[in-house]
């Protein structure tokens, strides 16, 4: 994948949003709540069309959002596992839909289990798993659906703080081995800086890019990074930007 850029003028959620992501890049998006992050993702996932005048490019070719259906692997906020499928069959759902042979897909998923900390759990059903494990099954489903671009919409939002940091490190680990392009939404600034090659801060609704910062911190990243001076300086800057936007939307909502 070379470049995805989009600029479109919606009345509400997004206005004149432009973004391009390089292949293999890990881009994180933060912003005040209700800034249109999810709208952005729905467009990139092909679920919503942007308004007229918007331009989407995928692999240097202009396209409609709906053409992106099946070409981007999307992970929503909730795990959305199917309760009647066990771990393996949930993980291969996307592969099954694109018509891959079940046996091959199962074999690949089975080989991937240890990497996702799910070894020995292949026959379990979602209601028998913890929240962190369910989330890992959902991530595995996203990874198995091999597409150039992965969209992760606050995948760790529902997890407790400890599980969350574990999952972040683990995700970086997996990403470094598989080298996928990732667009990652979060509202946690630490998470955004810790994970990303680049952090985007969105403005209050209508959403646009307020600030884009390259994160020039060495990889592999370790947990003590969060106290490094460069990290703190970057965090300061991003927090200020978010604060400003949050105040704007707060004033807009109370002033009206």
């Amino acid at each position: 994948m070379r470049e995805v850029s989009k600029s479109f003028g919606t009345v509400q959620a997004l206005r004149g949003f432009a973004l391009s992501v390089q292949g293999g890049e890990f881009v994180t998006v933060v912003g005040p709540s209700g800034c249109g992050k999810s709208t952005l993702f729905n467009i990139v996932a092909g679920l919503d069309e942007p308004d007229d005048g918007g331009i989407l490019r995928f692999k240097d070719r202009g396209c409609h959002a709906r053409e992106l259906l099946g070409r981007v692997s999307f992970m929503p906020q909730r795990d959305l596992l199917l309760p009647w499928r066990n771990v393996i069959d949930n993980a291969i759902l996307a592969n099954e839909i694109e018509g891959a042979s079940r046996r091959d897909a199962r074999a690949r998923a089975l080989a991937m289990l240890p990497e996702f900390g799910l070894a020995g759990f292949e026959k379990q059903y979602p209601h028998q798993l913890s929240g962190g494990m369910r989330q890992r099954v959902a991530l595995m489903r996203t990874f198995l659906f091999e597409r150039e671009l992965m969209l992760l919409d606050e995948p760790f939002g529902a997890l407790d703080a400890l599980t969350r940091t574990m999952m972040q490190r683990w995700l970086l680990d997996v990403w470094q081995r598989h080298r996928r392009t990732i667009l990652f939404i979060t509202h946690d600034v630490d998470e955004a800086i810790f994970l990303g090659d680049r952090v985007l801060v969105m403005t209050a609704r209508p959403g646009a890019v307020k600030l884009a910062r390259q994160v020039d911190l060495p990889r592999p990243r370790t947990p003590d990074l969060v106290t490094a001076p460069e990290f703190v300086a970057l965090k300061r800057e991003i927090l200020d930007a978010i604060e400003e936007e949050a105040m704007k939307s707060f004033i807009a909502s109370t002033g009206a």
Partner: peptide, 14 residues
């Protein structure tokens, strides 16, 4: 059926 679940399957190209 949860519309988010439908959206997920559609995003897989279903």
């Amino acid at each position: 059926v949860d519309p988010r679940q439908v959206a997920l399957l559609r995003s897989f190209g279903a």
